[in-house]
Each structure stands twice: as C-alpha cells, then as structure tokens.
Design a protein around this nucleic acid. Structure first.
Lengths: 243, 243
DNA sequence: TGATGCGCAGTTGTATACAAGGTTTATCTT
DNA sequence: AAGATAAACCTTGTATACAACTGCGCATCA
C-alpha cells in the first residue's frame, strides 16, 4: 500500500499542534498566520482550519480583536483535566459493566493485561516501551467496551488535552522514584477494573477507574514540585504557567 | 449601543445549525457547499468554517470522499448524551461541594430557585416562560459553581448536542402528562442539589444531579413512544432515526 | 514635555479563482 | 438490452487576492 498522502489540513494540524506543545511560541502573543503557514509549508486556508480545531481542543484561545494565541494552563487546570478524564473513563467503565462487556473485547482486554504483566515481569528488566504501548491499548479497549460512540469520542477528546492523556506522564516516568512500583500498582488497578466490569459491578468499575486516573495527578504533582531534569519533557508542560 | 453586527461565520454557524436541527436537509446525503452558502447569504469560506465546527459538535459527520452530511442519532445515542450530560453536570456539582461554592454565586442560585418557586406558584397558573428561563440560569450557575473553566466548557459542549440540553424538552412539555408535577419534582431536585453543595456533600450533589438529568430521559422516552403532536417540535428530533 | 490625533503598515476575515478528484450520463460494444 | 468505458460536469480542497480593521508610531499641538 502506497503511503497515504496526507492533506494540507492534516499537515497543518499535526505540525501546529506539535509546535504548540513543544513550546515553540511565545505565550500571551498572537500567532501570525502568514509566518506560521510559511513555516509549515502550507497556505493560510488549511492553517486557519487547523487553528479552529485547536481552539476547539483548547490548545489555542481566540483573541477578541482577532486571531489566536497559545492557551496557558494553571496547575488547577491540569488537575481538573486529569480528574475529568477519570470521570469520563469511569463512565465508560460503568457503562461497560452495566451493559455487559462485549466478550470479544473483554478477551482482548484480558490478553492486553497479560502482556502488561509480561512487560513488568519481576525476573527481568521492565520492558518500558511495551508497557506504554499495551497500556494505551487497554485504555482504548476500556473506552470501546462502553459500547457508546459518544463516550468513545469524548474520552478521545479529553485525552488530547495537554497532560490529560493516560499516557501523558509515561514518557519519562523513569525519572520518578519508585516508578516500577507505580506501574505495578497501576496494573493491579487495571485488573480490578476489568474484574468489576466482568462482574457487572458498575459502581466499583467507575470508582476504580477514577482512582486510576489519579495516578497521573500524583505524577503531575511530583513533576511540578520537584522539576526533575527530563530527558524527554512531557509534551505540553511548556504551557503550564510556572507562576 | 448599536446592534452588534455578527460576522459571516456567526451568520453561517447559526443559520446552518438551525437548518440542520429543523430537519431541512435530507439525511444520508451530502450538503452541497455552494447551494447552502448561497442560501445563507455568505461565501464558502465562512460556511466551511461553520461546517468544521458542527462536525466537532457532532451535528455533521465527514464523508470519506469529501464533504459532510447530517449526522443521525439512534435512540441510544440520545440516551447516552443525556446520561453523559448528567455525569458532567454531576461532576460540576461535586466539585462545587468539595471546593465550597462561591458565596455570591450560591446566593444567586438560591434567588433563582426562589423565582422558579414563584413561577410554579400553585395558587396561579404556571409561568412557563419564566420557568424555562430561570431553569436555564440555574443550570448555568451550577456549572460556574464548580470553579473550573474546563468543566464549564464541557457542560456547555454537551448541552449543545441535540436533545441533551437541560432545556431540550421544555419547549413543549405542556404536551406531556402531569408536566406540572414533573416541573415541581424537578424543582425539589434543584433544592436538594443546592443543599448538598452548601453542606459540602459532594457525593449527594453528584448523585442528585445525575438523577435530575434522567428527567430528560423520561421525557425523551415519552416523546419517542407516544409521538404526540407537538406544537413546537423539539429541535433536533428530526435527526433521530425513527427506525 | 506630555498627550492626542492622524496615518501607515501589518494582520485578520472574506470572497473567489483554480485545480484535483469524484459522479453521472451518454455512447459504444458485446 | 445490458454492461462497461469514457467524457463532461460538478464538487470539494487549496491558494491567493482583496478589503476592513487593529495597532503602533510619528508628528503636531497645547
């Protein structure tokens, strides 16, 4: 299959999002459309479409007088985003439990958790990349288990917010003390969530999923208070008001 | 103050949304940009911006080959949207309770509920318009009480979905049996929610707010099963697959 | 010297032109 | 007559031209 040629809009969208998250733009200053368009190698039309979408995503905010600027986030904003992602994922888990998870998806979820167990096998070194990959897959499956296109869409939306994704703090978790314990703890939560769904215990599934999201909050608090040297800085961290 | 002249984009957005919700377009058929643009009295550029936003809102969906068509919703979709709106509003209520509602907003909310009581005064005819207006205001205040811009934005987003807004089924509730009872019941829930927030009982505030949203579900089920003749059809009903 | 008004440059919002691709119709062949 | 192929038309995606507006700087006046 020949490589999909991506549209100008996708090029602008991916490029602009990455520029924003990497902190390429001055905060509190309007992005000049012509310059950015030239930088991305496209024209203003697809760029403005991309900007519209990023405004909807919350990464940009409109200026009353015209144009956009990069949005900044307070620590409270990030905490709320993480908490809210937990709420939405929790709703997915509850719905999955109430509606009885699709057997095929349930089997796939169990297999995914088995693979995470292997990645965390105490008898050898942790396979970090594999953990990250399978963790993302588990969360995606959890969302689909709800059987609601709306819920799936909304979880995806929330996960696009900076620092709110289930994988946001995994990129450099090696810098966090006891991160191996943290990953194993997370995996026990994964098991509990899936067990609750299998037993159709909606309340437990929802509560556990919310609690699981709070791990990200812990990581965020650690990073902002200790400000460790990060080899691969968490994308979006540049947008958090240091204050 | 001179009347704000609205931009071409706003004109296109409002006009297109209203055309869609009123069922003006054939479902399963692509909207022709030029024709719609001419109909709305604008050019293709702002119209396409509006279409982008309505895709993000979920009212339109993209066609693989290009362009958009009107989205249709199953009954399950609508039920999920209502339930999810309850979840998000419930989160707002819980946050308000946990964080201690801003006193000014709390006072305003109480005053709004007093006005709803007046609108429902049993000694005279129900002031329906006033109820609708103050009900919307109460829900807006509830959202702001959370003290989180993110939550406020997300509730607003959900309320824009067809049939998911707290006011969606009020437009013609007179057609629903015992609607006066229903309104009084809703008002008691309003009181309970505010009381829970005042007492910082987050769990109760959240549960009550979710339950409150389910009233809309009842109305929706009634309308879809009994299909009463509606004087002012609920906007968006045309998009629900009759099946 | 400070403040106010005017003008210019640069920016965004909107319209339109153009090109690539899809859809339909008509014609030709079997 | 039916199916396939080709051509013309229409539609969208993209670039660009244009106009209105904002913001800044400079000059002028009090």
């Amino acid at each position: 299959m020949a490589s999909e040629r991506l549209s100008q809009l996708d090029k602008a969208l991916l490029g602009l999002r990455s520029l924003i998250l990497s902190g390429h733009f001055d905060l509190n200053q309007r992005l000049p459309e012509v310059a950015v368009a030239k930088h991305l190698g496209t024209s203003r039309t697809p760029l403005r479409q991309a900007m519209d979408r990023l405004v909807a995503e919350g990464l940009l905010e409109r200026i009353e007088t015209g144009g956009c600027r990069v949005a900044t986030f307070s620590k409270e904003d990030i905490a709320d985003a993480i908490e809210f992602r937990g709420v939405v994922e929790g709703t997915a888990a509850r719905m999955a439990a109430q509606r009885g998870g699709n057997p095929g998806l349930m089997a796939e979820a169990r297999a995914t958790l088995d693979r995470i167990d292997q990645a965390l096998d105490p008898s050898q070194e942790i396979d970090f990349d594999r953990y990250v990959h399978e963790n993302a897959k588990f969360h995606a499956l959890l969302t689909r288990l709800a059987g609601s296109p709306l819920i799936e869409r909304e979880v995806a939306r929330m996960s696009r917010l900076p620092l709110a994704s289930p994988s946001a703090f995994l990129s450099d978790q090696a810098m966090i003390p006891n991160f191996q314990d943290s990953l194993r703890f997370a995996q026990r939560q994964h098991r509990a969530i899936l067990e609750a769904i299998a037993e159709r215990d909606g309340a437990r599934a929802e509560a556990m999923t919310r609690e699981h999201a709070r791990l990200a909050l812990t990581n965020f608090n650690y990073i902002t208070t200790h400000q460790p040297k990060l080899a691969n800085p968490v994308p979006g961290l540049a947008l958090v008001a240091s204050e």
